[in-house]
Design a protein around this nucleic acid. Structure first.
Length: 837
RNA sequence: GCCCGGAUGGCGUAAUCGGUAAACGCGGUGGACUCAAAAUCCAUUGCUCGAAAGGGCGUGCGGGUUCGAGUCCCGCUCCGGGCACCA
């Protein structure tokens, strides 16, 4: 496609100028109001893909717009440079992960520059930089001291593909690995955890005040999964004094408890299983251990509830009646107390189990008469419950908890679905966990002076299931920092989500050499005013970063008042290709570099802004190329409109004659009317674009610019004054400056002389006086159907517009001689005449 | 199963407070310019009946509220996403 200007040359030129100008390097003492715009820092996967382009286009637009509005905008960038792909590539090619990663960072950096995105590059951070590793390890140590990091044995998720353990958040609903798609196995291992559950309540509560997409908040609430209820002890009939502790959200249903269940992994299973039941119990335990997360993939509730009787009975605390104690695979050790009281009448799972095993069912809630199903889980009036009879569910819950507390058998309790964050990874290319194991001192953290602990380069990267570092004798063998005896280093590395949980704080003070960051610098910029990233991080990264911010504040590293990292969050839609999402793991199917070379970055940026609402997914289709060309065509039009000579008058542009050959409605002398209309079009565009940019409606902002360009062409052809046309063009260029920064820069410089920089200009302000037209089109309806359109004064009174409406021949014809029953007038937009038919 | 989103021309989409449905763009059609093509510019473009004037229909489906509904309410269908034995 032949272009109106040399796109390559101009885009290169301005990318250099922005870098040299240092306009986007901001310091803490900048007198302008501070604003922190941040896009999620990328994993360096080589040249940018369309998802990056979309993300960084939105971010760059925000940076430039806010700057023009007078803010000191902090716009940092860095690279989430630890991670599996580099290690896998190393295994395949023999290239060291660092070499591989550094090269890909350069490629991605080049893409971001080519896109025209501007950053304070002085602040760049990389997760794998020793200066960053040092502080990640420092933070780990402070967490360890505060009890927020601990080593524990647990049944953990093991991905055979990635050859490492995973966090719960990295396992998808169908039991597969979020990264590799392999089926995740359960293994019992000693691992490092972060105590995120200590913040469960605060993480849940503080969501309310965040200006985040509601669906992200809902996802986090679900993930945290708070349940209120009670814990109570069920005394074992055969062993008086011994009790099984259970958790329930429905203490009101106690009278309906007809059996109880332990999770197969429950520690009391052995002692409570009688010899004659040992065989079935052990068989079930074994099969539960092997199958656990798997097999329950597809249909959820249709799972067979397998169980086995332990041979023991427990006492129902309110009736004193013994009921059988089972083990069953539908009770999970990892939630609540790992044991439940079963109430088949009011719980669907218990109902199913009771049916299967022929157990007693006692209803304690009166179900609606229309209900003919099994378990009634809704609210209702209590029955068969002695002192709870007649109460509503909510009242009965409170009464039951009070009873449990009075009798010392239970108490009010809150449980969460959220589990502690497993951070150990049996991989090489990550931040080493800075501890040593000493035979006599146990777990000893590496001294601060020894940080960073850097993994050696000469490591055999093989997929053994053990950290590659474990086979490096020089790394493993060390001495205990406490007693100097020979000791062994921890060889696992941290989950890369640890690195990305505090980078936004480091950006505030990346130069700090004696601490992770200066608290004062953080107070100047944090929290992030606008965070932008993909919806795929709704739980993982965004939950971990929130936890880190709170924990860092509590251990004294971050300011104590900083409870949340991101005030406003925007999640952009994903790029889809034929229905499947494009992502770093699925490959780059359409390379942005191709467009940089052909239509240029501005056209590609404009396409991403214009294609639809930023929050919506985008389908990459055959039509996409044409849409991008359309954007390039628009940029060409702006170029010509702003810079090329055009004939002063065009055919038909006589005095007082509009484009359609109609008399000009306002200026009887011609010119003043056209000028006035052009001026109004400019101010309408300013108001529209400003409002649209503030409410993330970039597609309509682009449309408004196109409309303005159309209006300028039309009014110029119609003979508007050169001075007004010049002002209109300048306004258009200013409005386009955040969207198509290269074109806007070049046009501005050519119009205003060497050295003029459009992004140093103030954002245009609209004159409210010019937002309303003096004459508007009014619609006249008869019984809600449009029958005529009339030109009226914007300030016309009700009786005047009604009179004009009734005077219309078309309206009279539609009325057909019938007298109006009612007339609804909303001047100056509409009159609706209602007649009986 | 539960919880969120969504459904508007041939296509991407717009309509911010219940008041002209389809702004803006893509694609199509016709024309100007050209030896010709590309590029550019102009006109036109929801469907339908009609020679025209003009009419009818039209925002996933069925109801409702209202002078008036893409927008609000009730009941569905389909698509996308999240959660899913969490007691």
């Amino acid at each position: 496609m032949a272009r109106a200007y040399d796109v390559q040359e101009i885009e290169r030129k301005w990318q250099g100028r922005w870098r040299e100008s240092a306009d986007y390097e901001v310091d803490d003492d900048d007198p302008r109001p501070h604003y922190y715009v941040l896009c999620m820092y990328p994993y360096p996967s080589g040249p940018a893909h369309q998802g990056h382009v979309r993300n960084y286009t939105f971010g760059d637009l925000m940076v430039r717009y806010r700057t023009m509005k007078g803010y000191a905008v902090l716009s940092p960038i860095g690279f989430d440079s630890f991670g599996l792909p580099a290690e896998n590539a190393a295994i395949a090619t023999g290239i060291h992960p660092r070499t591989f990663t550094d090269q890909r960072i350069e490629e991605l950096r080049e893409s971001l520059v080519s896109l025209g995105a501007v950053y304070d590059w002085r602040r760049e951070v990389r997760s794998h930089d020793p200066a960053y590793i040092r502080w990640t390890q420092f933070i780990f140590k402070r967490f360890l001291e505060a009890g927020l990091a601990y080593r524990g044995a647990a049944l953990v998720n093991w991905c055979p593909g990635c050859q490492t353990v995973l966090a719960n958040e990295q396992v998808l609903a169908d039991g597969s690995c979020e990264r590799s798609g392999d089926e995740v196995e359960k293994r019992s291992l000693e691992q490092w955890f972060f105590r995120i559950t200590a913040y469960a309540d605060e993480l849940l509560r503080d969501l309310d005040a965040l200006d985040w997409p509601e669906r992200v908040k809902v996802m986090q609430r679900n993930w945290i999964g708070r349940s209120e209820g009670a814990e109570l002890d069920l005394e074992v009939y055969e062993h008086p004094g011994k009790a099984v502790r259970v958790f329930t959200t429905r203490p009101d249903t106690l009278f309906g408890m007809t059996y109880a269940v332990l999770a197969p992994e429950h520690p009391m299973v052995d002692e409570l299983t009688t010899p004659e039941n040992r065989g079935v119990v052990d068989a079930l335990r074994e099969s539960a251990r092997r199958s656990s997360e798997m097999e329950r993939t597809s249909v959820g509730s249709g799972l067979e509830k397998r169980g086995a009787f332990t041979g023991s009975m427990v006492l129902n605390p309110v009736t004193g009646k013994p009921v059988p104690l089972f083990i069953a695979d539908y009770v999970l050790m990892s939630y609540g107390t790992g044991a439940i009281m079963a109430v088949p009448a009011e719980d669907e799972r218990d109902w199913e189990f009771a049916q299967l095993h022929g157990l007693e069912i006692v209803r304690t809630v009166e179900a609606p008469s229309s209900f003919d199903g099994g378990a009634w889980t809704g609210d209702g009036i209590k029955i068969n419950s002695e002192w709870l009879n007649g109460l509503r569910t909510d009242e009965a819950i409170q009464r039951a908890i009070a009873w449990l507390e009075e009798h010392g058998v239970g108490k009010r309790s809150v449980k969460y679905r959220l589990r502690d964050w497993l951070v150990s990874r049996q991989r090489y290319w990550g931040c080493p966990i800075p501890v040593v194991y000493c035979g006599s001192c146990g777990i000893v953290p590496a001294p601060d002076e020894e940080l960073p602990i850097i993994a050696p380069d000469d490591v055999q990267l093989l997929q053994t299931g053990e950290s590659p570092l474990a086979s490096h004798q020089g790394f493993v063998h060390t001495t205990c920092p406490k007693c100097s005896a020979p000791a062994r280093r921890e060889t696992d590395t941290m989950d890369t989500f640890v690195d990305s949980s505090w980078y936004f704080l480091r950006f505030c003070d990346p130069w700090s050499i004696d601490k992770p960051f200066d608290q004062e610098a953080v107070e100047r910029w944090m929290p992030v005013d606008q965070y932008i990233g993909g919806i795929e991080h709704a739980i993982l990264h965004l939950l971990y970063a929130r936890f880190f911010t709170k924990a860092l504040a509590d251990v004294g590293i971050a300011p104590s008042g900083l409870r949340e990292p991101f005030s406003r969050l925007f999640t952009q839609g994903m790029i889809r290709l034929g229905g499947t999402k494009m992502s770093k793991s699925k490959g780059n199917l359409v390379a942005p570099q191709e467009y940089f070379r052909t239509v240029g970055a501005d056209a590609l940026r404009l396409y991403h802004l214009f294609v639809g609402p930023p929050a919506d997914d985008v389908d990459w289709s055959e039509q996409t190329g044409e849409l991008i060309e359309g954007c390039a065509r628009f940029l060409d039009r702006v170029w010509r409109l702003a810079l090329e000579e055009v004939p002063a008058t065009a055919p038909g542009a006589g005095a007082g004659v509009g484009s359609a050959g109609q008399p000009d409605p306002v200026g009887s002398a011609g010119q003043p009317g056209v000028d006035d209309q052009l001026k109004r079009a400019v101010h309408r565009a300013i108001a529209k674009v400003t409002d649209d940019l503030d409410r993330w409606s970039y597609n309509t902002a682009v449309a408004a610019c196109m409309e303005l360009a159309n209006a300028i062409s039309r009014y110029r052809r119609d003979g508007a004054a050169a001075r007004e046309i010049g002002k209109a063009i300048d306004a258009l260029v200013l409005l386009l400056a955040p969207m198509a920064p290269h074109l806007a820069s070049e046009v501005w410089e050519r119009r205003h002389g060497p050295g003029a920089m459009v992004h140093r200009e103030s954002w245009p302000i609209c004159d409210p006086e010019l937002l309303t037209d003096e004459r508007v089109t009014m619609v006249v309806q008869v019984n809600g159907k449009v029958r005529d359109r009339l030109e009226v004064n914007a300030s016309a009174a009700e009786e005047d517009v009604v009179r004009e409406a009734l005077a219309s021949a078309k309206v009279q014809e539609a009325l057909g001689g019938v007298a109006p029953r009612r007339i609804v007038a909303r001047p100056p937009r509409l009159v609706n005449i209602v007649v009986d038919r």
